[in-house]
Simulated assay, not measured.
Amino acid sequence: MPSTTTPAPAISIRALEKSYKKLSVLRGVDFDVDRGSIFALLGPNGAGKTTIVNILSTLLKADAGAAAVNGFDVASDAAHVRESISLTGQFAAVDEILTGRENLILVARLRHQPDPGGIADGLLERFSLTDAGSRKVATYSGGMRRRLDIAMSLIGQPPVIFLDEPTAGLDPQARLEVWAAVRELARNGTTVLLTTQTLDEAEHLADRIAILNEGRIVVNGTLDELKRLLPPAKVEYVEKQPTLEDVFLALTSDATKELP
């Protein structure tokens, strides 16, 4: 019989530690992210989410532990890691003076891609921005800017993309637009590591969710697995299944430090 091998994770982290002087931010973080999946890293402010992204994107060095992206070690093979990823932060990195199409063409040229115009047109269509492509980005809504920012990050077809709180500051309609764009990434085979403080964002998008609290992963699983950590509540004799918010608050409260 032919042997079947499980593909290596797109992202792998083992015993990752990071401190800033006397402040310990990461205290032995472990998790894997499957290829082509959406993995949500959920946690309160100061939990260490952005620190993890910065280490994975080679912007920051870990104090201890190991991390690999697309099979490349972030410490010893940083150049190949950078070729494998794209990073989109909390604010859209777009040039408001240029049109949407000009922004895409500019990035394609900077990355030495063939046919920058064709790449731009394809991404405008993919992210439903064709009609706005000839308009200056200054006229775009918040959701349109974020979608354009994500489109720009895909130039060069990186297999892994980090989205650090991509819907921060957006209105509800703009958030839905960005969510649709993120789902489109996964459908096309891109691995997405999403950091967020928004519980419904993780609930709606992620294949797996890890909750980071005080520098440690306190739980890692699918939404259904996380919900099973808490018993259903009875409201007027009817069972109410726990929400992701219930799980998050239970695992990050001062009274609860360990898994049940």
Rank of each mutant, 00 (worst) to 15 (best):
Q90K: 02
N70W: 11
A75H: 11
V33P: 13
N220H: 15
L163C: 06
T88I: 11
Y237Q: 15
A174V: 01
R27V: 06
V238W: 12
L244N: 15
T190D: 04
A75R: 14
S141I: 09
P9Y: 12
I55M: 05
G156E: 01
I97Y: 11
G118S: 01
A78W: 09
R27K: 05
I13Q: 02
V160D: 07
L87H: 02
V235Y: 08
P44T: 09
L148F: 14
I55N: 03
N213A: 14
F91I: 08
G71T: 09
H204S: 13
E125M: 12
A66F: 15
I161C: 11
P159Y: 13
V69K: 12
E125T: 09
E201P: 07
T139L: 00
P7N: 05
D95W: 01
R145W: 10
K240S: 10
V247C: 15
P7R: 01
R147P: 12
G133K: 00
R183L: 10
L176D: 08
R35Y: 00
V94P: 09
P2H: 07
A132D: 07
G122S: 14
T4L: 09
H112C: 05
V53I: 15
T51L: 06
I155E: 05
D95R: 00
R111C: 01
L251G: 04
K22T: 13
K136G: 14
R187G: 09
G36V: 02
V238Q: 10
A250V: 00
T243D: 09
L205K: 04
V192W: 02
P166H: 01
G65K: 13
E17T: 15
S19C: 08
T88V: 13
A10M: 10
T4W: 07
E236H: 04
K240L: 15
V160E: 11
A79F: 06
T196V: 14
V160K: 01
P172D: 00
E17G: 09
L185C: 13
G221Y: 13
A8E: 11
S3H: 12
I161Y: 14
T51E: 08
V218N: 03
G100I: 00
R175I: 11
L194A: 05
G221F: 05
L249D: 05
S37T: 07
T99I: 02
S19K: 13
T190P: 05
L212A: 05
P9G: 06
A66Y: 14
T58E: 05
R111E: 05
A78C: 08
Y140V: 03
I161A: 03
Q113T: 08
V33D: 15
R228P: 02
F31V: 02
T191A: 10
G221A: 04
